[in-house]
Design a binder for these strands. Structure first.
Lengths: 130, 130
DNA sequence: CCGGATCCTCCTAGATACTG
DNA sequence: CAGTATCTAGGAGGATCCGG
């Protein structure tokens, strides 16, 4: 369990967790990932259906984000060689498990969003009186 | 850009939740916020102590991130007008509540990180064989 | 010791146009 | 329909100097 090299520092252990967490947040923290996961949590969806549902996303960013999620093993990409072509995106089992932590965060957001906005307003108006 | 508007649809708008979640993730999804919250979760800390503990952060980004967190009401900034000056940063009660969703996410990261890396390796080596 | 101000460099999102 | 390719502007973030 304890790596012999660097296990003596009590802080480095939590630091390691922070780095992994930061890595995950780097994935899901971008502008579109959460929207995509949310959309796919209700079932598979085609490319342009996702595009329309999310709204405001360029095809390029949608493609890039989906590719990243596919690479992470969170989303599957299924191509049907029909004409016109059809591509379905769906959450993998691992991708499904992400929805739970996301819901916890979402609940937190719902609970404290107004408090945060109040704090921001207070901070901003305090800054004006300088 | 579509201005946030009242939902005309009576059904629960999941888009609205996604937007709030995206907003929160925009805050905590940046490179340093999680590290700062993690560091401060163990108690108040001075600026340069944070800087040393986190490591690799420029004083500019640390200042900016701390200002943002202060503005959001997640962190307090306390100045002691001594010479040399001393500034303590600490989590507010709301900031404390953020550590729980963060821990859920952290647990997820610990659980699935290796699976994700495996998926990435598989994806990458599959790309090479084209 | 804390951090504001400035400059400068990359990265990347977005728009546009083209292909199978 | 589902991408790929290319270009460009804007912003994020690092380095540095300076002031309180």
């Amino acid at each position: 369990m304890l790596p012999p090299d660097q296990a003596e520092d009590s802080g480095s252990d939590e630091h390691e967790q922070c780095r992994r967490l930061a890595k995950v947040l780097d994935r899901i923290g971008d502008k579109w990932t959460v929207m995509i996961i949310g959309a796919l949590s209700r079932g598979p969806m085609r490319f342009n259906a996702l595009r329309r549902l999310i709204g405001g996303v360029s095809q390029r960013m949608l493609t890039l984000t989906l590719r990243g999620l596919e690479r992470d093993g969170l989303v599957t990409r299924t191509v049907y060689p029909t004409i016109p072509p059809r591509v379905d995106y769906a959450l993998t089992p691992i991708g499904q498990t992400l929805t739970e932590p996301l819901r916890v965060l979402s609940d937190w957001a719902m609970a404290y969003q107004s408090a945060i906005e109040t704090a921001q307003d207070a901070y901003d108006s305090a800054q004006e009186n300088l």
